[in-house]
Amino acid sequence: MLHADGSLAAFASASDLADAIGRKEVPVTHTCLVDAKIRPVVVLQGRPRGALADYVALKLTRFAKLPADRRELVRQDVFPDLLYLPEDPDRYGLPTENAIDVNSLVRVHRDAIIAVAGWLDPHQVTTLGHKLAAALDIDLRGPIRDGVMAHLEALRRDD
């Protein structure tokens, strides 16, 4: 954390920082220094109106540090919380294979986005949406049931 006089103070956790604020050693409004790194993310929605400045995104990892047998399992794309992206620089804009981690939801301001490197196809987007709903414990049974009932009712009316 950066003090007004330019000196630095380090805190191991947010709780430690909160304690320091409580002791009035640190002002409530302060400046934090954090590590940063440019990295790829999967942006989950468009903002065509530009009315909202933030995007929801998911992080990717190369999973190159996993043992070979574990990497092979990821490539089979059978895990509910992962979506495998094979090596395809033209399509994804990434030089190697990657896995999207559904549990790594982040919010990214548009000013932090440098460029669009690639695209997911509609099927991948739908799959990712289903995985995300499950990971967020969103119960879709009600909307699905309502949709089926509406569809059946429309069929009945057409008969």
Partner: peptide, 11 residues
């Protein structure tokens, strides 16, 4: 995988 994605050590 989540740990790797969060830490950014394998990106």
């Amino acid at each position: 995988i989540h740990e790797l994605a969060e830490s950014g050590e394998d990106t």
